[in-house]
């Protein structure tokens, strides 16, 4: 089916856009990391949807391999980001920059 490919591609694109929006708008580090993960899921969904071949049931294995590689890369980057975020919170407590800033101004 023509539309199967299209459906997955568009869903992937929407996920990418949602993640990008959250990455820009949210200030909490954990949310930013989650947002970037959603973005990467969107890209992977689009990539893996190109492997789909209508009809004969054969698939294109190259996007599969690429997605597998991409997932591993994204896991590695996410792990580093999470540990780094923990360190940042331990040493300087800035994960909640905006919220705490609002607290201070309202209290003063």
């Amino acid at each position: 089916m023509m539309s199967t490919n299209l459906l997955y591609s568009l869903t992937g694109l929407v996920l990418f856009a949602l993640g990008l929006y959250a990455l820009i708008v949210c200030s909490h580090l954990l949310r930013k990391i989650l947002a970037s993960n959603i973005m990467s899921s969107g890209v992977f969904l689009m990539l893996v949807s190109t492997a789909y071949r209508a009809g004969n049931g054969k698939i294109d294995p190259v996007p599969h391999a690429m997605v597998l590689t991409g997932i591993v890369v994204s896991v590695s980057a996410t792990a580093l980001a999470l540990v780094l975020a923990c360190r940042v919170q331990e040493t300087s407590n800035v994960t909640l920059v905006r919220e705490e800033y609002q607290h201070d101004t309202s209290g003063a």
């Binding site: 990455l23 930013k32 990391i33 970037s36 973005m39 990467s40 890209v43 689009m46 990539l47």
Partner: peptide, 24 residues
């Protein structure tokens, strides 16, 4: 340096994803 590093990581992750989308 850690705050700068996590910002660097997020920016370059975003850059990589944009590049990967182009590859797609």
């Amino acid at each position: 340096s850690q705050i700068a590093a996590i910002r660097y990581l997020l920016v370059s992750f975003l850059g990589s994803l944009s590049y990967l989308l182009g590859v797609v």
